[in-house]
Write a protein that binds this DNA or RNA. Sequence first.
DNA 1: ATCGTTAGATACATCTGCGTATCTTAAGGC
DNA 2: GCCTTAAGATACGCAGATGTATCTAACGAT
Lengths: 192, 192
Amino acid sequence: MSLNSRRRGAELEDAILDAAWDTLIEHGYHGFTFEAIAARAGTSRPVLYRRWPQRADLLMAVLHKFWGSQPIEVPDTGDLRADAIGFLRNADKGRTGLMTVISAQLMEYFRETGTNFEELRDRLRRPGPLGFEVIVARAVARGDLPDEPRSRRVVNLPFDLLRNEMLMTMRPVSEQAITEIIDDVWLPLLLR
Amino acid sequence: MSLNSRRRGAELEDAILDAAWDTLIEHGYHGFTFEAIAARAGTSRPVLYRRWPQRADLLMAVLHKFWGSQPIEVPDTGDLRADAIGFLRNADKGRTGLMTVISAQLMEYFRETGTNFEELRDRLRRPGPLGFEVIVARAVARGDLPDEPRSRRVVNLPFDLLRNEMLMTMRPVSEQAITEIIDDVWLPLLLR
DNA sequence: ATCGTTAGATACATCTGCGTATCTTAAGGC
DNA sequence: GCCTTAAGATACGCAGATGTATCTAACGAT
């Protein structure tokens, strides 16, 4: 592996984090070993240990690099239903869907460290309003929804249901499930 | 360990399954090893291998014994809200809550076998109507709800939300969360 | 009392990952 | 061009788990 060039600093670190990320996706937290990651990155374990003494340190570095980095796009079509469905689609197909599945693979990590899904998400999420908060606020501004207080649970309901769907099936969420969530549950609740 | 009596047949098998169950709860799927289980059951690995050649075989035997065995009690108070809240409480505090958490620990198993949460649940669930189907049917019979078709997603919504809550926090679900699910989401949707 | 079955103990070779230590040599700053 | 830094290779002992083989002795049926 020492053909010619020897990577250093940030370049090396990026390569390792990429390898770690790929390893996590392909083999879950169980396969997320210094051994496997070093091999995949074309380096050796001591190089990893020098930077991240604990497996959890490396994991956090990976998640920081790849999780928060790509927020879900919030559509702005001028129509509440279209915005909601589009947002769920984006959440499903983008990195977030992947992250949900990954999070599930981290149960072993949660057990080891005593943390949970929620804490991890809060720790990695960038600040600002949630997607559905934006969508609802826009609808209210347009006059499509009455300007009344709504609980976070109601506003963010579709996302909770989408997550539940993802976790139960560990597969891409069907278009039918998405429209059911919006048409059978969320919109009737908002517009009652 | 051979003080006096040597267990055989069903007695031994029960003891092993108990030990396997405890091991799964305490150490997750990662700790669910023939080594640990045999030690805990006070026997040796060959005894286990003779009965369950694969780890997955043992796991399924354990889940069959401890999962389906205790259905969630469906309250029948004559009041829709009380029934719903009571049912969620029962689901949370009973074995089901535990099973949800356990299921999360099985992500590694799902990965290995290519199955998922949903398939496992369907495979282990005893036949018959779901809890909330019963609760809604009773309310309709009393005349408390109109007799109109409702999607499975709407009827079983509280359970999906409860599961989401359990998976996100990996802790007992708060009374507040339960009442929010029923009062802010489900009842307004049914009674709109 | 005998006998077939099988629990339980032990041993084995093997594998994978861990964490550390050591050495070389390439890279980059000055 | 020298010199400090650190990458990369390798080796070591350790731990835990795997799957199988072998032996004994307890149990249950007859």
